[in-house]
């Protein structure tokens, strides 16, 4: 059976690929605006590809965020509760997270199939869209596995998980949001 640390490693690898996608988007938009400005030519489909890569980046990042329980949550009540109740709340909350991601992965699969059959393409180069959405979907299915793994461990081996973070620790680790 995969140990929690192996899962963390896998989650981080997925996340690193996602963050590279972020770098590509930035570079693509930068080069596209430069080429429009200097040479008055647009890079074909730059707009569409940047958008699709953004989708891939975010959906591939979902798994790690879920595994590390890094979603933005309000722990006002949680802080006031005794440990036993906290544990129940953690399980309940993560059960809902898992349910949401499982259903999302399921309907997105249908969506990718629809786009495949519809033959949708980008407008300039007529690249088929479904492979992009398919790759994005892979991120959500990885998130499904990570969410399920966390759920199982949360119930049976909570001590083996990456320490449950509060909003306070979260903010310290990496600056986020507004």
């Amino acid at each position: 059976m995969a140990t929690p640390s192996m899962i963390t490693t896998a989650a981080t690898v997925i996340e690193r690929i996602a963050s590279l996608s972020l770098a590509v988007i930035t570079l693509l938009i930068f080069v596209a605006s430069l080429s429009r400005y200097l040479f008055a030519t647009s890079i074909p489909d730059a707009h569409a590809i940047a958008s699709l890569l953004l989708g891939i980046a975010i959906l591939w990042g979902l798994g790690s965020t879920t595994w590390r329980n890094d979603h933005i949550a309000v722990d006002l009540v949680w802080q006031l509760c005794p440990p036993a109740l906290r544990r129940l709340m953690d399980i309940f909350a993560h059960l809902l997270v898992t349910a949401f991601i499982v259903v999302l992965a399921w309907v997105l699969f249908g969506r990718v199939i629809t786009i495949l059959h519809a033959g949708q393409t980008t407008s300039d180069l007529q690249l088929p869209l479904w492979p992009f959405y398919g790759v994005a979907w892979l991120g959500v299915s990885a998130a499904t596995l990570l969410a399920l793994a966390r759920l199982v461990l949360l119930i049976w081996r909570p001590e083996s998980l990456p320490a449950s973070t509060s909003i306070v620790d979260d903010a310290a680790k990496e600056p986020r949001d507004g």
């Binding site: 963050s19 972020l22 975010i58 979902l62 790690s64 965020t65 933005i72 990496e174 986020r176």
Partner: peptide, 18 residues
């Protein structure tokens, strides 16, 4: 640079989820 990219991604994922 990789760390920076990862930081930015995590923050972005949190915002996009909301």
């Amino acid at each position: 640079t990789m760390t920076c990219l990862l930081d930015a991604l995590r923050t972005s994922v949190a915002i996009f989820t909301i």
